[in-house]
Design a protein around this nucleic acid. Structure first.
Length: 269
DNA sequence: AACAATGTTCAGTC
DNA sequence: GGACTGAACATTGT
């Protein structure tokens, strides 16, 4: 489920529960998730240190470590979640507003823990990820990320999103343009702005881009506040037979920017 | 069985 | 080189 709002919640969980605890052991044996590191490389670099800060930009997050240690980069991929437990094994719910995490439910399979940091007090920080597209690495390269979608200013937004000829949705999904917008947040934002996802950005005027910026900010903040992108107004109507919750017209499906896209056949035409 | 899935990356084509 | 598209990646769920 991770788009910017979910990653922000995960970051908050780490910040609330995983900082300043001595790292006693670490499981980095999943060579796919931890590529290009070899097994033990991350462990050797972090044992004895502490995480000192949890930061985020777009869907990427990272932790600074004590004693000038390396940065620990974590990306949740398509299905990753962060679980932090205290010394007694109880999950830390520092993320507050986020509800119902499959990662902490009784039925979770430990085989889906792809990366685990064990603290000296017995608690853990785990990356739980069924689909295994999440990623952990030391000193990640974040240089190609655009500004965070929740922070970008309107002038910067217009300049970046309005450049080029791609469909507007593809532009919103490009992490080097803006960092943090995923498939659902893009659909929600474009629906809120009543914009056709297929519309080329070079046909958008100044005011339309300004309005789109406002819709993105609003949709992103609402998703963080309400606990995830799936709480967007149009999201539950993204299915065959779905109707626009505003005007009742049928929702239409297309592929834009390589992703399944749903939009109102009337208002976003 | 076939296909889609909330993400990123890389090869290939203008 | 830049911009853009589509397939591949690993795995699960429908």
């Amino acid at each position: 489920m991770p788009e910017l709002p979910e990653v922000e919640s995960a970051r908050a969980v780490i910040e609330a529960g995983a900082l300043d605890r001595e790292i006693a052991d670490l499981d980095d044996s999943d060579t796919w998730v931890c590529r290009p590191h070899s097994p033990g490389e991350i462990r050797d670099a972090l044992i004895g240190r502490r995480l000192t800060a949890a930061l985020r930009r777009g869907k990427s997050m990272w932790c600074e470590t004590s004693s000038d240690g390396p940065v620990l980069g974590i990306h949740l991929g398509m299905s990753g979640r962060i679980v932090v437990t205290d010394g007694s094994g109880s999950p830390v719910e520092g993320g507050d507003r986020v509800r119902g995490t499959a990662a902490t439910s009784p039925g979770r399979d430990p085989a889906w823990d792809r990366f685990t940091v064990r603290f000296a007090d017995g608690g853990e920080l785990r990356l739980f990820d069924k689909r295994r597209l999440g990623r952990v690495r030391l000193d990640p390269d974040l240089s190609r990320l655009g500004p965070d979608a929740a922070e970008v200013g309107v002038a910067d937004f217009r300049e970046r999103v309005g450049r080029g000829t791609a469909p507007v949705k593809a532009r919103l999904l490009d992490q080097s343009v803006l960092a943090g917008v995923g498939n659902l947040l893009a659909d929600e934002t474009l629906w809120q702005a009543s914009l056709d996802p297929r519309r080329r950005v070079d046909t958008l005027d100044h005011d339309t881009l300004t309005a789109l910026h406002g819709a993105l900010k609003k949709a992103t903040r609402a998703a963080i506040r309400r606990g995830g992108v799936h709480t967007g107004e149009v999201i539950e109507h993204r299915s065959p037979g779905g109707h626009c919750p505003r005007c009742g017209a049928p929702m239409q499906r297309a592929t834009v920017g390589g992703r399944t896209t749903w939009f109102c056949s009337e208002e976003q035409g």
